[in-house]
C-alpha cells in the first residue's frame, strides 16, 4: 500500500499502461520535458523517450486529430488537453470523427483513444480555467465519459480507459489533484467503465453525484448522521453512458433523491439522471427530485466571494441534504 494523491494516481496509471503495452503513447502541450503543467506526466519523458511522450503545438484539434489517426492504425494514444476549457477546437474531431468511427465504418475501424482533460473550479482559475464541460459531450453515443472522484478511481478508471477499444473522455478535477490522497494497493487496479459505485449506504435519502462533489457529499453525509439521517451515496463514475440500473436502485431505496453537480444546472448530467428516475421510479418516490448545482451563470467568476457563491461546497451539500431529509 502506498499513499498517493489523485494526480500521482493518474501518473501511475499512464506509467503502468505504457510499460504494459508499447502501443500506448502520450501527446499534448508541455507533456514531455516539462512533465505537464500540473506535472501529471512527470518522469514519463525520461522513462519512455520522445517518441512515446510527444510535445505538441498549441492546437487542440491537431492533438486529438493526430491521436485519432494513430488509434485507427492500432496505436493507443492518450491525448492531453491542458484545460477542458480549451477542448472546444477539438469538438469536431471528438464528436464527428472519434465517436462515430466504429458506427460509420460498419465496425471496420475504431478509435481506442483516451482524451484526458482537467476540469472544475475552486482554484481561482476564473472563466477559462474552471469550467465543467462534460454535459457538452454527454449526448454522443459512441463516446464514453469518465470522471473519477478519488485517487483509487483515478487510477483504475484511467487504466480501463486506455484499454477501452473505443474513445473515452477522461475528465480529472484539478482541485482534486493534490487535495485527495488515499492508500492505494500496489497490485493492479482496474475499474469497469459504465458502472456506478455505492460509496456509502443509508436509508433516509439518496445522493447521486460524481467528481469532486462525491468528496463534499461524503463529508456532509458523515455530518448528517449527527442529525440522525443516513445517506445512500452513489458515485456515477461514468457520466456517459449512465449506469441506469444503479441509479434506479439507489433512487428506489429511499424515495428521496438529491442530485449534485458542479456544472450549471440546466441540461447537465444530473438532468438526465433526473429523467431516468422520473421514467422508472414514479411509484417509489417520496419527494420531488432535488438538484444542487452551479447557478445558470456563464462561467465560474474570478472574485473569491463570487467563486465561493458559484461553487458547490460541503456546506451547501449539507444544507441541501438536511432540507431533503426533512421534507
Amino acid at each position: 500500500m502506498t499513499v498517493m494523491s489523485y494526480i500521482e494516481a493518474i501518473n501511475r496509471a499512464m506509467k503502468e499502461e505504457m510499460r504494459r503495452d508499447d502501443d500506448v503513447f502520450l501527446l499534448g502541450e508541455d507533456v514531455g520535458k516539462r512533465g505537464g503543467v500540473f506535472r501529471a506526466s512527470e518522469g514519463l519523458y525520461e522513462a519512455f523517450g520522445q517518441t512515446r511522450v510527444i510535445d505538441t503545438p498549441l492546437a487542440e484539434s491537431a492533438i486529438v486529430g493526430v491521436g485519432i489517426g494513430a488509434s485507427m492504425y492500432g496505436m493507443k494514444p492518450i491525448a492531453e488537453i491542458q484545460f477542458v476549457d480549451f477542448i472546444l477546437p477539438a469538438v469536431n474531431q471528438i464528436v464527428s470523427e472519434a465517436a462515430k468511427m466504429r458506427y460509420r465504418s460498419n465496425n471496420d475501424w475504431s478509435c481506442p483513444i483516451t482524451i484526458r482533460a482537467p476540469y472544475g473550479g475552486g482554484v481561482h482559475g476564473a472563466l477559462y480555467h474552471s469550467q465543467s464541460l462534460e454535459a457538452l459531450f454527454a449526448s454522443q453515443p459512441g463516446l464514453k465519459i469518465v470522471m473519477p472522484s478519488s485517487p483509487k478511481d483515478a487510477l483504475g478508471l484511467l487504466k480501463a480507459a486506455i484499454r477501452d477499444p473505443d474513445p473515452v473522455l477522461y475528465l480529472e478535477h484539478k482541485k482534486a489533484y493534490r487535495l485527495l490522497k488515499e492508500d492505494l494497493p500496489d497490485e493492479e487496479v482496474l475499474i469497469e467503465i459504465g458502472k456506478a459505485n455505492t460509496v456509502r449506504k443509508g436509508d433516509d435519502l439518496t445522493v447521486i453525484t460524481y467528481g469532486l462533489c462525491v468528496e463534499f457529499s461524503k463529508k456532509a453525509a458523515e455530518k448528517l448522521t449527527e442529525k440522525g439521517h443516513t445517506v445512500e451515496l452513489l458515485d456515477l463514475r461514468t457520466v456517459y453512458p449512465l449506469d441506469e440500473q444503479a441509479i434506479i436502485e439507489a433512487a428506489k431505496k429511499t424515495g428521496k433523491v438529491l442530485l449534485i453537480t458542479e456544472d450549471n444546472k440546466e441540461g447537465s448530467i444530473i438532468s438526465e439522471v433526473s429523467a431516468i428516475i422520473g421514467e422508472h421510479c414514479l411509484f417509489d418516490l417520496d419527494a420531488p427530485i432535488f438538484r444542487l448545482a452551479a447557478p445558470n451563470v456563464p462561467a465560474m467568476p474570478y472574485a473569491p466571494p463570487l467563486e465561493k457563491a458559484f461553487m458547490v461546497s460541503e456546506d451547501k451539500v449539507y444544507e441541501k441534504m438536511l432540507e431533503v431529509a426533512m421534507y
Binding site: G255, L282, F283, D284, L285, D286, A287
Partner: peptide, 16 residues
C-alpha cells in the same frame, strides 16, 4: 396555514 398544509399531500411511495 402552511403548518399542516402538507398533511394530506401523499407521495407516490406513501400511497403505494
Amino acid at each position: 396555514s402552511e403548518k399542516q398544509s402538507m398533511k394530506k399531500r401523499y407521495s407516490p411511495k406513501v400511497l403505494s
